[in-house]
Design a protein around this nucleic acid. Structure first.
Lengths: 177, 177
DNA sequence: GTCTATAGGATGATAGAC
DNA sequence: GTCTATCATCCTATAGAC
């Protein structure tokens, strides 16, 4: 673990805390203790607790937007497979942050940090469902929420073939044709 | 909506609040306002906020234990199908409470209310996975977390064939043979 | 059983020294 | 940039009247 600057250490500690006890359950005090600084230092680097959340969600949100753009140029058939692989890669690269989106977004949709993310998740559902069929959309939502949740499970995190396994589950669950 | 006694109204209001903003995000004040009583009345009927949670989780936990007992008398092949249908029925009967278990349990496993539930969920995973194969267990966890999450989605809640759709998704996702 | 009032503590955030 | 000290607010929970 390379030595980072304070700002990045705060983000890393906050990500762990939010993943462990949820956004509401994590306190600035606990994050500061984990970083080894004071609450005041946290609030020097970020305008507030919600700003930490926003900074944490921003990178995966950008990649989600990039994925959405790539998918929009494809046919429905191509888009599904690309959406599955793209989402799994996104989840693996940003486990805690994506879990935050799929876990705390329903409780925090009023937060500006999540305002842009919601429509992106809706379009990802449509890509996975290949349209607006309610049953297919439901299957897509099961896959998204389930995948986002499972990668935080400590027993699953060690699976060497995690990526292939997740893609396999998603393909099977969505294979309604 | 039939008029219930205060205790049951508190439980109903707490279930809605917990589902909307999470256990940590919900305050006794907000629950009391929704019920139309004071915080003190809440704490007359329940020893504390955690006791409300425990009372809410207890009924589905009992049914989960009953399902576990039924499954233990079956062969692995029978148990999977029964586990799928049993879990879906459980989720549909106790949407908010099950969501609480699969949503907040990871953050609240220290709570006594959840101590008994954790091993039951592990055994349900084993039943769905037909054993201890890591990939199959992962698929089972995706199905459980995804199913529990999706039934709180307002767009999915109105699906007339919700039960059949959920069972279909689970069967496909778990069909690794 | 339900209330008002309040205790006691944690929380997010600010002020000002260094 | 980081700190200590502090503020105002919110929270859970209790005390005691009715």
């Amino acid at each position: 673990m390379a030595r980072l600057n304070t700002r990045d250490e705060i983000l890393a500690a906050a990500a762990r805390q939010f993943a462990n006890v949820g956004y509401k359950g994590a306190s600035l005090h606990d994050i500061a203790v984990e970083v080894g600084c004071s609450k005041a230092t946290l609030l020097y680097h970020f305008a507030g607790k919600d700003a930490i959340l926003a900074a944490l969600v921003e990178p995966p949100a950008r990649e989600l937007a990039a994925l959405d753009e790539r998918l929009s140029a494809m046919s429905a058939g191509q888009a599904r497979d690309a959406a599955i692989e793209g989402f799994v890669d996104l989840v693996l690269a940003y486990r805690r942050e994506i879990a935050l989106i799929y876990h705390d977004l329903p409780h925090l949709f009023h937060q500006p940090a999540f305002a842009d993310v919601k429509p992106l998740t809706d379009r990802l559902v449509a890509a996975l469902a290949r349209g607006t069929d309610p049953s297919a959309q439901l299957a897509a939502k099961v896959v998204l929420a389930g995948t986002a949740a499972v990668v935080l499970d400590p027993e699953c995190a060690t699976d060497p073939d995690l990526r292939a396994t997740l893609i396999g589950v998603a393909r099977r669950a969505l294979n309604t044709s």
